[in-house]
């Protein structure tokens, strides 16, 4: 498969024109490495808790609303797809197209939060609360931490939409690329949470 790294101009970074540059800026890479470390530690907690309480972790996923988890996985993936499309669009100077794709990310975020609200309401009605057992405590810890990152993503997206509409990424795309990387990292975390919590018996 042909690799097509994007190139930049001298205005955007210190790289020479035409030289492929890593998307985003250094700050966001540090940020998402910290995010992956944070989730990595929470996954270690999951593994240790599961090893000590295998029965609770075998029974637990069956008590959850799997469809809610699956829909949120589809929304996360679709959000990642939309933000990647927005990044490519802005590199082609298609600001209006980029804005439409960013609106798609907004739909994914709102949809995710709505499904989470419905899921938690359903959970409470069915006695799935954090104090019901070790599996449920780990489930809430992991999914709430992830939800906080989604809310941060929503705030970041609002800023990026305003900046894109104002033409801020006409030549230097780093801001939008950095937001895209943050969203992809949050997606990566969910791609591990979903099978661990909802599927693995």
């Amino acid at each position: 498969m042909q690799r097509e790294p994007h190139t930049t101009n001298a205005t955007a970074t210190t790289a020479a024109p035409g030289v492929p540059t890593l998307p985003g800026n250094r700050g966001i890479w540090v940020g998402i490495l910290a995010e992956m470390t944070e989730f990595g530690l929470l996954f270690m907690v999951y593994f240790i808790a599961r090893a000590h309480h295998p029965e609770a972790f075998m029974k637990g996923p069956g008590e959850l609303h799997t469809e809610a988890g699956m829909i949120n996985t589809l929304l996360m993936i679709s959000g990642s797809f939309c933000v990647a499309k927005a990044t490519f669009a802005v590199r082609r100077q298609k600001q209006r197209l980029a804005l439409r794709w960013l609106a798609g990310v907004g739909v994914a975020i709102v949809g995710y939060l709505l499904i989470k609200y419905l899921e938690i309401t359903w959970n409470i009605a069915h006695g799935v609360v954090g104090t019901a057992g070790v599996f449920y405590a780990v489930y809430y810890y992991l999914t709430f931490t992830h939800m906080v990152h989604i809310v941060w993503g929503g705030m970041g997206l609002t800023w990026i939409i305003f900046r894109t509409a104002g033409g801020a990424y006409h030549e230097n795309h780093q801001g939008l690329e950095s937001f895209a990387l943050y969203w992809h990292a949050t997606d990566l975390a969910w791609l591990i949470i979903f099978p661990l919590i909802y599927l693995l018996r």
Partner: peptide
């Protein structure tokens, strides 16, 4: 300064297939 291409690159078009693959893997 190089003028950006107005049509989607192969990498951009590939995203559509990747999204379908990710959705398929999730649903399946």
């Amino acid at each position: 300064m190089a003028t950006p291409s107005s049509s989607p690159t192969a990498a951009e078009r590939r995203l559509n297939l990747l999204w379908l693959a990710l959705v398929g893997l999730t649903l399946g």
